[in-house]
Amino acid sequence: MVIICADILARNLMGASLPLVSEGGALLVVTIVALQLAATVRAGRLARAEVVIVPLTARFPRAGAILQGVFDLAGAGVLGVIAWASIRVVEKDMVAAEFIGVPGIATLPTWPFRALILTGFAIAAMEFAARVFAALRKGTGQ
């Protein structure tokens, strides 16, 4: 917010854009979403329809927990795959010295962002995996 506001002032008062704001901002959006994903999963804030699972869990706590465990397993699976396959993306960005910006004006390498994105998805996958075990414990009544 502060950076964008600074850019607005720079552009409207001095007639020049700050370099890298829009490209860097775009990359930062992905990075932040990835890094915050695990926390959002943990807080149970991923959007879902509660009309079946909530009453189900209330009446049959074990069945509800097992169903929840299956969902978390799927989450761990897809995010794990994304994290694992992102290793190749990071490598490619490093090898190609991928950057944003314009050479001669201002540039920034992208691989550190890519590495953080990978880390974010990996942590989110682990968070899901941890929930699978918690659900299993509940489901088997231990």
């Binding site: 552009r11 854009s17 704001v21 314009v102 050479p103």
Partner: peptide, 16 residues
């Protein structure tokens, strides 16, 4: 992008 470099030296400001 690269069009901004074409304005270097002209005194014009490149707007993204």
């Amino acid at each position: 992008g690269v069009l901004g470099t074409w304005l270097r030296g002209t005194g014009a400001n490149a707007v993204d």
